[in-house]
Computed example of a mutant assay.
Amino acid sequence: MFRAAFFDIDGTLVSFETHGVPDSTVKALAHMRESGVKIILATGRSLLDVHPDLQPGGRIAVDAVLAFNGQLCCDSKGTFRDCPLEEKDVRAVVSQAEAGLYDVILMQQTRFLMSRYSDRIRSTEERVGKTDAELGLSDALSEPTYQICAYIDEGEEGIFMHECSNVEFTRWCDGFCDIIPKGGGKPAGIKAALARYGIEPDECIAFGDGGNDIAMFGCVGQSVAMGEASVAVKVAASYVTSNVDDDGILRACEHFGLL
């Protein structure tokens, strides 16, 4: 019996085509929660830009959010994991971005800061939705940064890794990677959630579609890759379902007896 289900957002709950949550997904998650399964978001997004359907009062009731790839975790009772990037590492990345080595978006609790509005960032926004970011990084250190989106090609991450002492990166698409604290990521957020609720890994299921979901799959008893996921993600999952727009969540829930 599952006691918790962890969901990625983009490409898993929210469609890249419509930028909405399918009705079948809303139905499936409502049934799961009514059956006593905790619905937990595990996302690279911040609390600011979680889809409206997943916000308090939205169409889907959520028990907890593991934001910034697990660096800030909270539920209705408060925050249970808070792990921002170290200031010296933020400073190093900001320096490189201001030197024009690559573009970045700094993700903080109350705002996003963008180095410049480049074609590469614009292209990503067309896929996942617009990010309301402030231009300029001069005030970057006045608030903790939990994650940095670095618009850099796969294989070139050494540019910032050589300058930072306590970071790692994860990637769910070709356009950019997420810089997070070393030892962080969705597994760290899941571990914190399991401890908070007294749940064992084999009592959990996770749903995802991106490269940053592969490590999450290894933290739970069962895992589901969405139909549009890469081969690597599908190989790592217990089960491969259809695309989000083709009732992928509903079909997976039926397969695992969650409906």
Rank of each mutant, 00 (worst) to 15 (best):
Q109D: 03
Q109N: 10
F112Y: 15
L113V: 08
M114P: 12
S115L: 12
R116T: 15
R122G: 13
E126D: 09
V128E: 13
E134T: 13
L135A: 02
L135D: 03
L135S: 04
L137C: 04
A140M: 10
A140I: 02
A140C: 13
L141C: 14
I152V: 10
D153C: 02
E154M: 12
G155Y: 10
G155V: 14
E157S: 03
G158V: 09
G158H: 11
G158M: 10
I159D: 07
I159V: 05
F160S: 08
F160T: 07
F160G: 07
F160A: 06
M161H: 15
H162K: 15
T170N: 05
T170P: 01
W172I: 03
D174P: 04
G175Q: 09
C177W: 12
C177H: 11
I179W: 05
I179T: 09
G183C: 04
G183D: 04
P187T: 11
I190N: 08
A192G: 11
A193G: 13
A193Q: 09
R196N: 00
R196C: 01
Y197P: 05
Y197W: 14
E200Q: 00
P201F: 08
D202T: 00
E203P: 00
A206D: 01
N212R: 07
D213H: 02
D213M: 01
A215G: 03
M216S: 13
G218M: 00
V220L: 10
G221S: 06
G221L: 07
V224H: 07
G227E: 09
S230K: 10
V231G: 11
A232E: 15
A232P: 13
V233M: 02
A236Y: 04
V240N: 03
V240H: 05
G248S: 11
